[in-house]
Computed example of a mutant assay.
Amino acid sequence: MVGIVRPWITRGSLHHVLVLSLLILAGCGVGFWLLEPRAVTLADGLWLAFTTAATVGYGDIVPTTPAAKIFAVFVVLLGYAALSLVTAAIAAVWVESAEREVEREILHELHAEVKRLRADLQTLRDERRD
């Protein structure tokens, strides 16, 4: 049970970073929905937050008020940070899995070598007895 729950609550884990990024994006969406008159629905605010945070800027909805434009600057900075954290967390998962595979191979080779050494030692003991 602990093994299942741990990735969701471990700080810095991929799950934690994804949830944090989604919460940041949702907060930015609500902010745009409140500040930007062209963002009529919450979905429009979320879309504007996503396109701004990802620096895509499709132009279908753009910040028009001074408050929304200033808020957009902070959304871009938060977007860079959040997307960088998600990218880093995904890379860490891949590197960790590659490291585990290398460790498995090393341990397999080490166990095989220990087995051969034990066999050689037993052979030497048997020869000494004879």
Rank of each mutant, 00 (worst) to 15 (best):
T51A: 14
D130S: 09
D130T: 03
I24A: 06
E105N: 14
V86W: 01
V30T: 02
L85C: 08
V19M: 13
S13E: 09
L46K: 00
L110R: 14
E36N: 00
A98K: 10
R116D: 11
A72M: 10
W94Y: 12
V17Y: 00
A54N: 14
L124W: 09
G57S: 08
E99P: 09
A81I: 06
T55V: 03
L110C: 14
R11M: 06
S13Q: 00
H108G: 15
V40D: 13
L107D: 15
W33P: 00
L25G: 04
T55R: 15
V102K: 07
S13G: 12
G57E: 09
A39S: 01
R104Y: 01
V75W: 01
L77E: 12
S84D: 13
E103D: 14
H15P: 07
V73Y: 09
L48H: 02
R6Q: 15
V114E: 15
L22F: 05
A39D: 07
E127F: 13
A72W: 08
I24W: 07
P37T: 03
E96D: 15
W94Q: 09
E109Q: 15
Q122T: 12
W33S: 04
G3V: 03
H15W: 06
K115I: 03
A54E: 13
L25N: 02
W8G: 08
L110I: 07
F50V: 04
A98N: 09
F32E: 02
F50T: 05
L20G: 11
A39M: 02
T87E: 10
G59L: 11
T55G: 11
G3F: 05
P66I: 05
G12A: 10
H15D: 05
I90D: 07
R128I: 04
L77K: 09
V73K: 04
H15R: 06
A82N: 05
R116V: 03
T10N: 10
V2I: 06
W94G: 04
G31P: 06
P66K: 10
W8F: 15
A39C: 04
V95T: 11
A67C: 05
T87D: 14
I9N: 12
I90Q: 05
A26E: 10
L20T: 05
V19L: 12
R104F: 04
P63T: 07
